[in-house]
Amino acid sequence: MDSNNELTREKLSLPNAGKKLLLHSCCAPCAGEVMEALISSDIDFTIYFYNPNIHPRKEYDIRKDENIRFAEKHNIPFIDADYDVDNWFDLAKGMEHEPERGVRCTMCFDMRFEKTAAYAAENGFDVISSSLGISRWKNMEQINDCGLRAASRYPNMDYWTFNWRKKGGSARMLEISKREKFYMQEYCGCAYSLRDTNKWRMASGREKIELGTKYYGEED
């Protein structure tokens, strides 16, 4: 039996009778399950791709193109925001050696969600959310705090704190990634996570990350 059939999705609805969702997407693997859940719930949504933290540009382009491919497959509108990398590095100054899930990540989430909320307010969206929270490597409370803070700056806007990991969401995320043969990123995204991941790999006797080579489903 197809395990997708075993893990049924619940019917979702936007908070506070929201009508239109702007979904910040970090990458196709994280967004795939979220997008399919929204589609099956007949929720009107648009993808907003704003991730100036992703480094280097080669990695950024691969992640963005994979997300575009999946959005086009389902006829979902896709907003390709600027690669504002210089501004991101300016904001990260002094935080270069902060750990994952620390203050640098809070800054990064704030930066991305503030621009998402601003676009939403200017373009008729009353709810924002993000695919970031589905990853087990992320602190969901940290993400939600940043999202709620960004949405609070605009009247009549909500940040949807839905737990995308629950009720089989994390398992479906992996199934969809294998089915679609999404690119498998091996670090969070920023230059400092790449640096620290490679340090750990080298200390563990492993090779450094080779960008653009690994895809889900290759082991099948």
Rank of each mutant, 00 (worst) to 15 (best):
Q185W: 08
R149Q: 12
N156Y: 00
P29A: 04
T161V: 10
K178C: 13
V34Q: 09
K115C: 02
A71D: 06
P99K: 15
G94E: 15
D44Y: 05
F49W: 04
K58G: 13
M1F: 03
K58P: 00
M184D: 14
A151L: 08
I62C: 06
N16K: 08
W164Q: 04
A117K: 03
I79P: 11
D90S: 10
E100H: 05
C188Y: 14
E33M: 07
M95F: 15
C190I: 12
R165Y: 07
G94L: 10
L194R: 11
K115Q: 13
M202I: 15
F182W: 13
K167I: 04
D90G: 01
F49I: 00
S130D: 03
L132C: 05
S13P: 00
Y187W: 05
S40E: 15
P56T: 08
N75Y: 02
L211F: 14
K178I: 13
M202L: 14
V85C: 02
M95C: 10
I76P: 13
S152L: 05
I54E: 06
W137C: 10
L22N: 01
A150I: 03
S193W: 05
R57H: 09
L91I: 12
N16W: 00
G189A: 08
P56F: 09
E66T: 06
R201C: 07
E59V: 07
N5C: 10
A37C: 09
G168M: 07
S204N: 15
L22P: 01
R136G: 07
L23M: 12
V127N: 04
N67C: 15
R153C: 06
F78I: 09
R101A: 04
N198V: 06
E6W: 12
G94Q: 13
K214P: 11
I68L: 12
A151W: 02
V103Q: 14
M1Q: 07
A118G: 06
W160P: 00
D86I: 05
E98S: 12
S129H: 07
K93V: 14
K19M: 00
D126M: 11
N4L: 14
F162W: 12
E218D: 15
A151P: 10
G18E: 02
E6F: 14
K138T: 11
M95H: 15
D90I: 10
L148R: 02
G133N: 14
E122K: 14
K20D: 00
F70C: 00
G189Q: 03
S40I: 00
W160G: 06
C27L: 07
G217L: 10
D61R: 08
R104D: 09
K64D: 12
